[in-house]
Simulated scan of single mutants.
Amino acid sequence: MRNRSGSRVVVAVAASVLLALSGCVELEEPGAGPSTPAGGGGNATTMLGELTVASAGTMKGYSRNRFPHWRKTGKNCDVRDTVLQRDGSNIELSDCNVVGGSWESVYDGRSFTDPSQVDIDHMVPLANAWRSGADEWDDSKRGDFANDLDRPQLFAVSASSNRSKGDQDPSQWKPSNQSYWCTYAGHWIEVKHHWELSVTSAEKDALTDMLKGC
């Protein structure tokens, strides 16, 4: 049976919370990106072993609107601006809106200078989360998941890679940048572990294989 506990883990107040309150405070050094999996492949393997393995649920009742995003982080600014600012370099702002900069997509190594050409990817896609336990959450918790800046859940990547990925898990889609596979697997596992989402057997096998490169 899948672990679908509605409990929430209380996390320490971090820079991301300050950003949400102020709307214009930098989350991290520009281009820093989300944190890498703590402890590397070893901890990721341990967390993977703790995930519930279950068949994927249905899409019945699913809508992206059930995962409210992007949350406001200031006047005319939202979580998308936060991620663009965090993941880019030479950022140009209008108030706290990101209007220019440079970004390198970790999924495929492509570079961009126009923020409109960059998508914000959910590491664990919303539809995948729905099929692995989020269908039993309320919309408030789904909103917390969709706007999670504390886990490695949100990334600025090329629009083409984001749309190629869709809602597929690592058994169905992997970044073309193979040097990123270890980190990708670790991030995927960390997000699912924190949010107590299940994995399919094929998904677990793919993640196990990707961690071998760590």
Rank of each mutant, 00 (worst) to 15 (best):
Y107D: 01
G49F: 08
T113I: 11
D169P: 03
N177T: 06
L93F: 11
V99G: 00
E104I: 14
V124C: 06
A134I: 03
R151H: 11
F112Q: 09
D108C: 02
K192F: 04
W181G: 07
S102K: 10
P37G: 06
M123P: 06
D150Q: 07
R64M: 04
G31N: 01
A44R: 05
A38S: 10
T113K: 10
G186D: 12
G213Q: 15
D138H: 11
A56F: 01
I91T: 13
S201R: 12
S198Y: 00
V79A: 07
N128P: 04
Q172Y: 07
D119Y: 07
G74M: 05
D169A: 05
G31K: 04
R86V: 10
G61T: 15
S89M: 10
H187T: 01
R71T: 01
S164V: 00
L27F: 09
T113M: 07
A14S: 12
A38Y: 04
T46Y: 13
A134S: 10
A206D: 02
V25M: 11
Q168Y: 02
N147C: 13
D121Q: 14
G74F: 01
H194Q: 11
L126M: 10
W188G: 03
R151S: 14
A206H: 04
D135M: 14
W181F: 06
A56H: 01
W103E: 15
V199C: 02
K212P: 01
G88D: 03
P30C: 02
S89K: 15
R110E: 13
E136T: 15
K212D: 08
L149R: 04
W130E: 00
N177I: 00
D205Q: 09
V11L: 11
Q117F: 01
N177G: 02
V124M: 02
S116K: 13
W195I: 07
K75T: 15
L27P: 12
R151N: 07
T52L: 10
V106N: 12
G57P: 00
V83G: 13
V191A: 03
E50M: 14
S35C: 10
A185V: 08
S22T: 15
F155Q: 08
E92K: 12
V199D: 11
K72R: 12
S89P: 03
K75N: 13
D209S: 15
D78Y: 05
A127N: 05
A20W: 09
D139H: 08
C214A: 11
G61H: 12
A38D: 09
M1E: 14
A32Q: 14
W137C: 09
W181K: 06
H187R: 10
N128E: 08
A156M: 03
A202D: 14
S94E: 11
N43E: 09
T45Q: 15
Y107Q: 01
